[in-house]
């Protein structure tokens, strides 16, 4: 039981910030900050988000985001600021438009193609089976 609690504690701890304590104005602002840094990619260590990364640049960008929040900038403005400097690459959730459409809809497209292929295959098999029913034999050793 204690081991389990320790394990849960560890899991929670590792999902917390790699962060410098920041004096947020209120809880609401802190929540906004958490959501933002979780959705923005660290430009140095590219498979981490800004919240988790310990890289210098991630630290700088967190500070920048915090300061812009204090200055009253909206989330959209802050994201636009970063995209202007680092490109769309910083967004973990790419924009739903233009060349990203393939990225968003690709899986769906593949699912549809696969679904059609399976349907065609099943139909053909059913037709073939109707013409020439396969004898069901008890002594086939599967």
């Amino acid at each position: 039981m204690r081991a389990l609690l320790c394990l849960i504690g560890l899991l929670i701890a590792s999902s917390a910030f790699a962060i410098d304590p920041l004096p947020f104005a209120d809880k609401d602002q802190e929540d906004r900050f958490r959501v933002l840094v979780a959705e923005l990619r660290c430009v140095q260590c590219q498979n981490q988000n800004l919240a988790d990364s310990d890289a210098l640049i991630a630290k700088d960008l967190r500070k920048e985001i915090f300061e812009q929040m204090q200055a009253g900038r909206s989330d959209d403005e802050i994201v636009a600021f970063l995209v202007e400097r680092y490109g769309e690459f910083v967004l973990y959730r790419p924009v739903f438009s233009g060349k990203n459409l393939l990225l968003w809809l690709g899986p769906l497209l593949i699912l549809v193609i696969g679904g059609v292929a399976v349907a065609v295959h099943l139909r053909r098999r059913r037709v073939a089976a109707g013409d020439n029913p396969m004898p069901i034999s008890e002594d086939i050793d599967w």
Partner: peptide, 13 residues
């Protein structure tokens, strides 16, 4: 000194 200018240049390191 604090990397603020670096952000404006989109520097990652």
């Amino acid at each position: 000194p604090d990397g603020r200018l670096g952000i404006d240049f989109g520097i990652t390191g």
